[in-house]
Design a protein around this nucleic acid. Structure first.
Lengths: 258, 258
DNA sequence: CATATGATGTTTCTCGAAAAATCAGATTGA
DNA sequence: TCAATCTGATTTTTCGAGAAACATCATATG
């Protein structure tokens, strides 16, 4: 998106707040599995790890909690969101639903610029996949970013910000499972991406949806076929989810004024 | 405010934190239109209004920002999320997508307990709607909560926590537009709810989806038929949304350690 | 032996102030 | 007159400490 960034910003954008930087790092650490699922996050420790005060860290933790990447139970602290096969399946099904719908809209409305974005993103992804297949597994982050950019480009003409935003959120959770399960399906996935590209240029949404369903489902099955017991620390069942939501749902909304 | 909480503090649940109470109140104030869209929220003022310190308020504001109910631009403060006809349409379309899908799953899997929940929720909603139609518009909060509980009951057997959570989030945004536009479609909406109940008991998902689409779409059109220009304060266009998201999307994720 | 009770240490939650940044108005120069 | 810069005031961001809540463990009691 067209926000003005400083021309020379390598890692941390120049005029960015401390909290924002720590937020990105913490978020990436959860997504890429460097923080174990269900791991307890003690304020004092993590805030020192990421170079902020506890107050600032609490902001980030609350933010990530509201995204579902961290669970905050009452006044007993925070921990990394747990994982489970069921949750993985649900996340995958949700991604399927959103992305299939978005493909339909996007394929119908995409203009020439859109085609350009799709082709460009696929090229970059294709190159990265070639490297990964060749054995160069040094940088899964940029590889996965290319994967994201391709899938995002496909649906970028869907015309709904809300849809894109929700898809982004669920994609990230899906990505987390991919990184935890350490999935390489190089050749197969690359071929599916190739077919998605062809469908996009032919505006064939129906076929693309079929390919995408396979793309996601086979990934889930491949991941769950492995040793899923290693995912759990003790018992990570349904657990105490965000039951304390405000607004209308949780309980009767409080009166307006005090 | 170090004083202990009164045992009979009729507002929130007994052992609830100050932040949690303020969060619910602030969230409800946004959802029910008591805080105008695009209204600037100065830390000092709102924190005093809701009885917390600025640090605590920042937590809540960040949390609501991550839910999309508040926008936080750079280090220029927070404001209530803006509204626009386009956004309303997108939110409605998203609710339609999620709720139709959930209905299909739920109608197929619902057991007798589910039927009981649906019937009970519809009864309560029906009574409230009767009062509203009769002219008793004192308490839109409980009325809308009954609406929520009915729609939630319908899809409660869909089997996916992720789906239910996302639906809850989008329902709240939809609700906000309903409250802003001040929509009363008493008789029509009540009849549609009646038909939804019948479809649920007959397990007729296809018809229910059709009713729901009408239910949502006609509401959108009814709302947008009015004077939408009053919604905007100055220019509330697409505006600077959450461009600064972390993780994979925004930019290259930062390396793990420093 | 199992359970209830109480003291102690640890962690979270809340607060107010210092530091950094933004904004509005005034001043200066072309 | 217009643009640019500077200054003062307001607002946001960050921090560390105190108060409340929780967890742990030892002790007492049936």
């Amino acid at each position: 998106m067209g926000s003005s960034r400083k021309p020379s910003d390598g890692d941390g954008p120049a005029g960015e707040t401390v909290g924002e930087i720590a937020y990105r790092r913490l978020r990436a650490d959860i997504l890429f599995g460097r923080l174990a699922p269900a791991e307890k996050l003690r304020l004092d420790r993590v805030s020192r790890t990421y170079g902020t005060s506890v107050s600032t860290m609490r902001e980030l933790l609350n933010r990530l909690g509201s995204e579902g990447l961290i669970v905050a139970e009452g006044q007993r602290g925070f921990e990394v969101a747990p994982v489970s096969p069921d949750d993985f399946r649900e996340v995958a099904a949700m991604r399927q639903l959103l992305e299939c719908h978005a493909i339909e809209q996007s394929f119908a409305a995409g203009d020439l610029d859109w085609e350009g974005r799709v082709v460009a993103a696929h090229h970059k992804l294709s190159v990265m996949e070639g490297r990964m297949i060749a054995g160069d597994r040094a940088d899964p982050q940029t590889w996965k970013r290319c994967d994201w950019e391709f899938h995002h480009a496909l649906i970028s003409a869907c015309g709904s910000r809300v849809l894109l935003q929700m898809h982004g959120a669920i994609y990230d959770k899906y990505l987390r499972y991919q990184m935890i399960a350490v999935i390489f399906r190089g050749e197969v996935a690359a071929r599916e991406h190739q077919r998605l590209l062809q469908c996009a240029l032919a505006r064939d949404a129906a076929t693309a949806q079929g390919v995408l369903v396979t793309h996601i489902q086979s990934c889930v099955e491949h991941a769950l076929a492995g040793d899923t017991t290693a995912w759990f620390k003790e018992r990570s069942g349904p657990g105490p989810r965000d039951d304390a939501r405000g607004g209308i749902h949780g309980r009767s909304a409080a009166p307006a004024r005090d």
